[in-house]
Amino acid sequence: MSKPTVALAADHAGFELKNLLRDELKAQGYAVLDLGTNGPDSVDYPDFGRKLAQTVADGQAQMGVVVCGTGIGISIAANRVPGCRAALCHDATSARLCREHNDANVLALGARLIGVETARDCLKAFLETPFAGGRHARRVEKLGQPA
Score class of each variant (00 low, 15 high):
77 A>S: 14
44 D>E: 14
63 M>R: 15
110 G>T: 02
60 Q>T: 06
59 G>T: 10
22 R>M: 12
12 H>A: 10
107 L>N: 08
111 A>C: 09
109 L>N: 02
94 S>G: 08
139 R>A: 04
71 G>W: 10
52 L>V: 02
136 H>F: 14
126 F>A: 06
117 E>R: 11
137 A>D: 11
66 V>H: 05
122 C>P: 02
92 A>W: 00
27 A>K: 15
40 P>Q: 12
37 T>L: 05
99 R>C: 07
120 R>C: 03
67 V>M: 08
107 L>V: 09
106 V>Y: 10
45 Y>V: 00
60 Q>C: 00
17 L>E: 06
63 M>E: 10
22 R>L: 10
15 F>A: 09
107 L>K: 07
3 K>L: 15
33 L>E: 14
60 Q>N: 15
129 T>H: 12
25 L>Y: 08
105 N>G: 07
30 Y>N: 12
24 E>I: 11
29 G>R: 06
2 S>I: 11
47 D>R: 09
1 M>R: 14
59 G>V: 10
112 R>C: 00
58 D>C: 01
110 G>L: 05
114 I>R: 00
78 A>R: 07
112 R>L: 01
17 L>Q: 05
80 R>T: 14
90 H>E: 05
141 E>L: 13
139 R>C: 05
54 Q>I: 09
29 G>S: 07
77 A>D: 08
147 A>R: 15
130 P>M: 10
6 V>S: 10
1 M>I: 11
138 R>H: 13
9 A>W: 01
80 R>E: 15
59 G>D: 09
12 H>Y: 10
87 A>Q: 12
118 T>E: 07
140 V>Y: 07
75 S>K: 10
126 F>I: 03
145 Q>M: 15
62 Q>H: 04
135 R>Y: 08
88 L>P: 11
31 A>K: 14
3 K>V: 14
86 A>P: 10
143 L>Q: 06
3 K>D: 12
29 G>V: 09
133 G>Q: 04
132 A>H: 10
93 T>R: 13
56 V>Y: 02
81 V>R: 01
102 N>Y: 06
146 P>T: 14
115 G>V: 02
117 E>T: 13
73 G>P: 01
38 N>I: 00
16 E>N: 04
147 A>N: 12
71 G>V: 13
65 V>W: 01
140 V>S: 06
115 G>M: 02
105 N>W: 08
83 G>A: 04
125 A>T: 04
80 R>F: 09
118 T>N: 00
31 A>Q: 15
64 G>L: 03
113 L>E: 04
55 T>F: 02
10 A>T: 08
37 T>P: 03
47 D>E: 14
113 L>R: 01
2 S>Y: 01
37 T>A: 06
118 T>F: 00
96 R>V: 01
55 T>G: 01
128 E>T: 15
18 K>E: 08
93 T>I: 13
16 E>Q: 11
127 L>Y: 08
33 L>N: 12
74 I>N: 05
64 G>K: 05
19 N>Y: 00
136 H>V: 10
102 N>F: 06
16 E>H: 05
98 C>H: 04
32 V>H: 07
102 N>G: 06
